[in-house]
């Protein structure tokens, strides 16, 4: 194991469980090999790690589990290219290198004592699952909670079964779970884009924090719907994505924004507030 004074040092993690969520996305349960790191490692929902496979490369992946579970964490990875395809071939017992956590994460302290509205489109459910699980693990700190999970097709809804299985506990705990699809004629449930279901949330617009994660092209219309429904723009947060190589503000790939607001998505983000987004050309 490398000494930790090198920010690029990787820590070995063993895969304990590999589970197919859809035909493209797998969920991985990981554990640090080194017990000291397992003990001390913690993160904030919305943060990400760099996952490395020697000889293949390194990719940024959001942590999708609750930080309440020490030493273990989950990653949901979509197979899209070189590194992610190799990760998909791994079996329980195999190892990967991990460094992080990186990024600002969602301001969970600020979320306390308010209702929480989570709006996810597609792979956007990944970081929001961490927020959701954390809120459920600390139920007494938060008000009502709504999760809107959306995808094109029913079998592409990430964590669909898990969310369905939570129906009873949700009812008992003032949690509303809305799953909707946009293109699936076979789907028996709700249809339409995530923002069309904001009106059915159990959250009080006057006292809510909102976290949105999905393709940035959808953000403007989601903002419109939220503001129309009376949500406070100051309490709307989104996550952004860019190509990343370092995760620590060095390699320059994730730089975005304009000359008055130049930001590193990896360290200044990936979570940004509504006003940052609307006042900065080039962020979305």
């Amino acid at each position: 194991m490398e000494s930790s004074d090198n920010v690029y040092s990787l820590y070995k993690c063993r895969l304990l469980r590999v589970y197919s969520l859809t035909d493209e996305e797998k969920l991985f349960l990981l554990r640090f090999e080194d017990s000291d790191i397992a003990e001390s490692w913690s993160f904030i929902p919305g943060q990400f790690v760099q996952v490395a496979l020697p000889g293949v490369g390194e990719v940024p992946i959001s942590i999708c589990s609750s930080p309440m579970r020490r030493g273990f964490f989950e990653l949901c990875i979509k197979k899209v290219g070189k590194v992610t395809s190799m990760i998909h071939k791994l079996q329980p017992g195999d190892c990967v290198g991990i460094r992080g956590p990186y990024g600002n994460g969602f301001p969970m302290d600020e979320f306390e004592h308010s209702d929480i509205l989570l709006i996810a489109a597609g792979i956007g459910m990944v970081p929001l699952r961490s927020v959701f699980m954390y809120a459920v693990d600390n139920r007494w700190k938060f008000g009502n909670i709504t999760v809107i999970n959306s995808a094109r097709y029913g079998d592409k809804l990430l964590f669909r079964k898990e969310l369905e299985a939570m129906r009873d506990i949700a009812e008992a705990e003032n949690i509303k779970i809305i799953q909707t699809v946009t293109r699936d004629p076979e789907w028996p449930g709700r249809v339409g884009r995530a923002q069309e279901h904001i009106k059915d949330a159990n959250t009080d617009p006057k006292n809510s924090c909102v976290a949105v994660c999905g393709p940035p092209q959808a953000y403007r219309s989601i903002f419109e719907k939220l503001i129309e429904a009376g949500y406070d723009p100051n309490k709307i947060y989104v996550t952004l994505e860019r190509r990343m190589k370092c995760g620590v503000g060095k390699c320059g790939h994730c730089i975005a924004g304009s000359s008055t607001f130049l930001k590193y998505i990896c360290i200044d983000g990936p979570v940004f507030g509504y006003y940052d987004i609307i006042s900065t050309p080039g962020l979305i």
Partner: peptide, 11 residues
């Protein structure tokens, strides 16, 4: 002051 870099694993 430009300092963008790329990283590669070369077997």
């Amino acid at each position: 002051t430009c300092r963008c870099y790329d990283v590669q694993d070369l077997p």
